[in-house]
C-alpha cells in the first residue's frame, strides 16, 4: 500500500458515493447510464470472487464488500426504485460490442487458464471500457449535470492515481502487472477528453457541462 494506491481507492469510493447520493437525493437517475452501472456491478462481481478463496487483509475485504454493495445499490436505484426517471432512450450504447471482445480477450490473454483467473481478467478488461455507455450518453445528449461530471472526475482520478501507484510499485518493489497496467492506461485515456471538458467548462462555474 502506498499513498497513490490509497488515494486512488478513496477517489473510487468518493465517485461511487457521489453518484449514489445524487440519485438518492434528487430521486432521479436522469442523465445516468444504467448500462455503465450494470457493467461496473459485473466488474466487481467477477473480480471479487476471490473473497471466497483467499484472505488478503481486512482493508481489502471491507473495500471489496463495500464496492459490491454500493454498485448493486446504484443499479437497484436506477432500474427499480427510480426507474421512471431513467433515460433509457438515450442509453443506447450496444453493450454486446464491449462484452464480446472483452470475453474473447480474457480467454486469450490471462495469467492462468482457470475460471477465477479468466473472470478476473474479464473484470479488468471490462472495467477499462465500462464507462463508454455513460460517455456515449453525454455525447448523445450533449450535456451532463455538474454532479455527474464530478462523479466522472473522481472515477478518472482513481484510474490516474492507480497508474501512479504502478509506477511507484515498479520502482520500489519491481512489481508490475501487465494486464492491469495496459487496461488501466486504456481506461485512463478514455477520460482525457472528459478531463479537458471538466476543467475548461465545469470548473468555470457553469451548472452543466455542454458539448460544443
Amino acid at each position: 500500500m502506498n499513498v497513490f494506491r490509497l488515494a486512488g481507492d478513496v477517489s473510487h469510493l468518493v465517485a461511487i458515493i457521489i453518484l449514489l447520493l445524487k440519485i438518492w437525493r434528487s430521486k432521479s437517475c436522469a442523465g445516468i447510464s444504467g448500462k455503465s452501472q450494470v457493467l461496473f456491478a459485473l466488474v466487481f462481481t467477477t473480480r471479487y470472487l476471490d473473497l471466497f478463496t483467499v484472505f488478503i487483509s481486512v482493508y481489502n475485504t471491507v473495500m471489496k464488500v463495500v464496492f459490491l454493495a454500493l454498485s448493486y445499490a446504484t443499479v437497484y436505484l436506477i432500474y427499480m426504485r427510480f426507474r421512471n426517471s431513467y433515460n433509457s432512450e438515450n442509453d443506447t450504447f450496444r453493450v454486446e460490442f464491449l462484452l464480446v471482445p472483452v470475453i474473447g480477450l480474457s480467454f486469450l490473454e490471462n495469467y492462468a487458464f482457470t475460471p477465477l483467473e479468466i473472470l478476473w481478467t474479464f473484470s479488468i478488461f471490462l472495467e477499462a471500457v465500462a464507462i463508454m455507455p455513460q460517455l456515449f450518453m453525454i455525447t448523445k445528449t450533449g450535456e451532463a449535470e455538474s454532479i455527474t461530471t464530478h462523479y466522472l472526475f473522481f472515477l478518472g482520478l482513481y484510474r490516474a492515481l492507480y497508474i501512479a501507484n504502478w509506477v511507484w510499485r515498479y520502482h520500489t518493489e519491481s512489481f508490475y502487472d501487465l494486464i492491469a497496467i495496459v487496461s488501466g492506461v486504456v481506461q485512463t485515456i478514455f477520460f482525457c477528453d472528459f478531463f479537458y471538458l471538466y476543467f475548461t467548462r465545469v470548473l468555470r462555474g457553469r451548472g452543466k457541462m455542454t458539448l460544443p
Binding site: M1, R5, D9, H12, D50, V54, I56, S57, N60, M63, K64, F67, Y111, A112, E117, W120, Y162, N165, F175, D177, A180
Partner: peptide, 10 residues
C-alpha cells in the same frame, strides 16, 4: 498468477 502478485489491488 500468485495471490501475492497484484490481487491485493482493488
Amino acid at each position: 498468477m500468485d495471490d501475492d502478485f497484484g490481487k491485493d489491488e482493488l
